[in-house]
Structures are given as structure tokens and as C-alpha cells.
Amino acid sequence: MSDQALIEGTGANWQTWLELLDERGAAGLGHTAIAQMLVREFEIDGWWAQSITVGYEQERGLREPGQRPDGTFSASASKTLDLSIGAAFEQVADADVRARWLPDLELSQRSASPPKSVRFDASDGTRILVNLSARGGEKTAVQVEVAKLASAEESAAAKAAWKTRLERLAEAARA
């Protein structure tokens, strides 16, 4: 995030926020404690508090880019399909239909909110969240988030793998 955006949103630049957090011993605090301090002491919006906290943690070497507070990483990929949201949901949620475009990963469904989302545990130990959004007519955006990845390298590999998988989904939808 640029200094200008930060100044417009919070009234201070990165250097000021870094100094303020250092003065308050933020390097020894957890993510939630830092964000809560920013909201409480500086009365900034929660979104800005999260953004500043993540930036601080990255700047001080407490978190790698893309790393979540629990130390894991996530990855995401998306694709717009030429399908209604109901048909796209079936492609993702129905195990037999899904096996046609996703033969390389076994998913166990955790929960679903038809036709908008499905959560899975994957056979590789990751967690998968699929969100679907109608884009008008017979188009649906499918967004996949992969959680519980161990490293930035695994995140990059998961992103690439899911881009390929979503291409296969798009091909299956056209068939």
C-alpha cells in the first residue's frame, strides 16, 4: 500500500505507523493485539488496523508476504464460467460431476451454502473454499481459496495448480 493511500485513510504514513508501533512494543505482541491497539488508541477503522498490522509484521520480519497470523499461507485462483450459478454449483459440489474435471485431488465436503459456496478438506491436507457469484445471464465467477499451506512456495504451486484445475472446469462446462 502506498504512503499516499495510507495518509488518506489514516492520516499518517508508513514511517509514522512503524515508529508508533515500535514505541508501543508491537514487535512483541500478536497480530490481534496489534490490530486492537490501533483501533483502541488511534480510533482507526478495523480494515485499516488490519492493513497496518500486516504491513508492520512484514516490515519487521514477523510475517512473510502472504502469510496468515497462524503461520500458514493461502492461495487463490478464479475463473468465470459460461454456466448459471446453479449449474456451476453442481460442477463443484457434486462429487461424481467434480471427478470429471478434478481427478487429481480428493475432496471431502465440510459444508455448503447452495448455490454460493462449498468448503472442503482436501486429501493433500489443505482446506478449500469455493465461492460462486452470478455474473448475469449464464455466467458465474468461481473463486477458490486454498488454506493451510506451509510456505510461500506451496502457495505459488497451489495457485498454479488451481488455475489449471479451473481451466479443466471451464472445459468440462463447455462439453
Rank of each mutant, 00 (worst) to 15 (best):
F42I: 03
E145Y: 08
A12L: 07
S113R: 12
S78Y: 10
A134D: 08
E154N: 02
T164H: 10
T72F: 14
G71L: 03
W162D: 03
D82F: 14
E41C: 13
S111E: 10
R24H: 12
K116E: 13
R168S: 12
G25I: 15
H31E: 10
Y56I: 11
E171H: 05
T126Q: 01
Q67E: 08
G86S: 04
F120L: 00
G9V: 05
L38R: 06
H31I: 13
W17F: 12
E43N: 05
E171A: 14
A170H: 00
D94E: 06
Q109P: 13
S78R: 07
L169E: 02
W14P: 15
V118H: 05
S78Q: 06
S111P: 14
V97W: 05
W47D: 06
L132V: 03
K139R: 02
V130R: 09
L132C: 11
A95P: 10
E59Y: 14
I85F: 10
A95I: 10
G11S: 03
D3L: 00
R110M: 12
V39W: 11
E41V: 03
V97F: 12
S2D: 10
K116S: 11
S2Y: 04
L107T: 12
E23N: 11
L129E: 15
E57T: 11
A152F: 00
I44R: 13
Q91P: 13
L21W: 10
V142C: 00
L102W: 15
D104G: 00
F73D: 01
V54G: 05
G25E: 04
E153G: 03
A27F: 15
T80F: 03
A173P: 02
S133N: 14
E145P: 04
A87V: 05
K163W: 06
P114H: 06
W101I: 15
T126H: 15
D45Q: 13
K163Y: 00
S155L: 01
E138T: 06
R63I: 06
T72K: 08
A49K: 04
S133F: 13
R168M: 10
L29C: 11
S123G: 07
Y56N: 00
Q4N: 00
L129T: 14
P114D: 02
A175Q: 11
